[in-house]
Amino acid sequence: MDSMAIIIRDDSYDKILTPLAFAYLQAAEGTVVDILFVNWAVRALTEDGAAAMHIHGEHAKDEAMVREGVAKAGLPTEIMDILKALKSTECVNFYACSLAASIFGVNEDNLINEAEGIIGASWFLNEKASKADHCQYF
């Protein structure tokens, strides 16, 4: 696989782990991974938003257990540190959906340096998702 596109919607700590782990796996092999953050997940591309990620709902009480498991697995426990680890592979690109950015308070000022930018979903869907060898939605 040469390229993979991922679209992430959920911003809860536990639900964002899987797409980031999949991206890490493929990037480690040299696959170019393009990730579009939509809806609440776009806030992961800000320092404050990434730091504020928690487990929601009925599993909220298990967050300490989950973070302990993540550390045991060998991953950084903070989402921002995972994003930085992915970026360090030089195979992962992060994009903020412009609609989501507008609604959920992300702009050029608070977007993290690791992100490529705020882009239109049409561009991502046509230039990245449809041309990727594999596309996943979370």
């Binding site: 782990a21 999949f22 796996l25 480690a28 092999e29 045991k72 697995a73 991953l75």
Partner: peptide
């Protein structure tokens, strides 16, 4: 002791 994705990454 480590789990996916770290063994493959490392």
């Amino acid at each position: 002791g480590k789990c996916c994705p770290m063994p493959m990454v490392e």
